[in-house]
């Protein structure tokens, strides 16, 4: 049910098909730095876009491919590690100081290769077993990076990993970083939307709905699932590169089990049926994480308990709306009578 734009699916009058609300959201995102302070730009929106991209890669696999993968955070972290290892960091003994136009492609290729490999192992399983096998590999990745000092610098990881100073801009300053992450998030979002209607994306949704029939139509189902992991891993890798720049450091904890689970929570809370869901989930997650310690201490509770709030929110969403906040919103719109006709699916 992932195809929302139904009429004229192959034609390209795309500008007219974008609802007004999206134009407004785009405009607000563009002029945001004029209204909010650097903290909000960097700590709230920066994180939202970065985590949203990593969760988007999970949404692509889960929403279009029906495969719930817990490896996306590890793929992102591997991309981040590659930036630290092939680029510049505070650990001069390991980092190779290659230029950015070399270490970024290397990072993406290595991370995508890793994601593809994990996918090749995971696609032979279904449902809960896919979750288990990817979780197992994610924990193995965590312990491996923590114990390996030759490449991953073990427990302490890498610090002082910053984006290159391109065009005379310090991309780690709040406003440039905001636009950098916004641009990457929008590009990856558009890529997913576009690919979802390409032959590959359609076939992936066919595989999700009915793998047996897809094989009877001439599709190699296994190869399609593995290719979906590759595509998702490229997005996760870019998210990971931005993540390491945002933190200016990377260590095993970046892809620890809590972080792995967070990505799942973000995707589920936002909704995995549409590519905007992970970004909504990431915004909710980041806002809660940033501001709930203040609220909690106001009530005399420990500020570290913000995960309790997120956990309760997760429970509430899963309980009331299995398709996330986005699903709540769509049902609310439908009840207001402005949504789609339940019989024909046409917009009223």
């Amino acid at each position: 049910m992932a195809l929302v734009e139904r009429s004229t699916p192959y034609q390209s009058s795309w500008a007219e098909r974008i609802p007004t609300a999206w134009w407004i959201a785009g405009l607000v995102a563009l002029i945001m730095p004029a209204f909010v302070n650097d903290f909000i730009l960097f700590q709230v929106f920066g994180w939202t876009f970065v985590l949203g991209m990593i969760a988007l890669s999970l949404m692509f696999l889960a929403g279009y491919g029906g495969m719930v993968s817990l490896i996306q955070m590890s793929v992102a972290a591997l991309g981040g590690y590659m930036v630290a290892i092939f680029g510049t960091s505070g650990v001069a003994a390991i980092s190779m100081d290659l230029p950015w136009w070399l270490y970024i492609p290397i990072a993406v290729i290595v991370a995508a290769a890793f994601g593809t490999l994990v996918g090749a192992l995971a696609v032979r399983t279904e449902g809960i077993y896919t979750i288990m096998i990817t979780l197992a590999i994610a924990s193995a990745f965590f312990y491996f990076t923590r114990q390996n000092y030759g490449i991953f610098n073990g427990y302490s990881g890498f610090n002082l990993v910053v984006p290159p100073h391109l065009f005379g801009v310090d991309w780690r300053q709040p406003m440039p970083f905001y636009y950098l992450t916004l641009g990457c998030a929008v590009l990856s979002y558009l890529a997913v939307v576009y690919v979802s209607r390409s032959p590959f994306g359609l076939a992936l949704q066919g595989v999700r709905d009915n793998p047996r029939r897809m094989a009877a139509l001439g599709f190699n189902v296994t190869a399609h699932r593995i290719a979906a992991y590759t595509f998702a891993s490229v997005i996760a890798a870019f998210g990971g590169i931005l993540l390491v720049w945002q933190n200016a450091q990377i260590s095993p904890g970046t892809a620890g089990i809590p972080a792995v689970i967070d990505i799942l929570v973000i995707a589920v809370v936002g909704g995995v049926r549409r590519p905007i869901g992970p970004f909504i989930g990431a915004l909710i997650y980041t806002v809660l994480r940033t501001f709930s310690p203040d609220i909690l201490t106001g009530f005399g509770l420990s500020g570290e308990r913000f995960k309790l709030l997120i956990g309760l929110g997760f429970l509430a969403v899963v309980f009331f709306s299995p398709d996330g906040v986005l699903g709540l919103w769509e049902r609310w719109r439908a009840r207001k009578g402005r949504g789609r006709d339940p019989l024909t699916g046409e917009a009223k």
């Binding site: 699916p9 192959y10 390409s198 032959p199 590959f200 066919g206 709905d209 139509l217 599709f219």
Partner: peptide, 26 residues
Amino acid sequence: FGGLTVSDNVYLACRGVSRGRFSLLR
């Protein structure tokens, strides 16, 4: 494929037995 349109279903069937099954281009 209940979640896809009639055209999408037939298009997939045509695509399944031709080249470009992995095409990312619409």
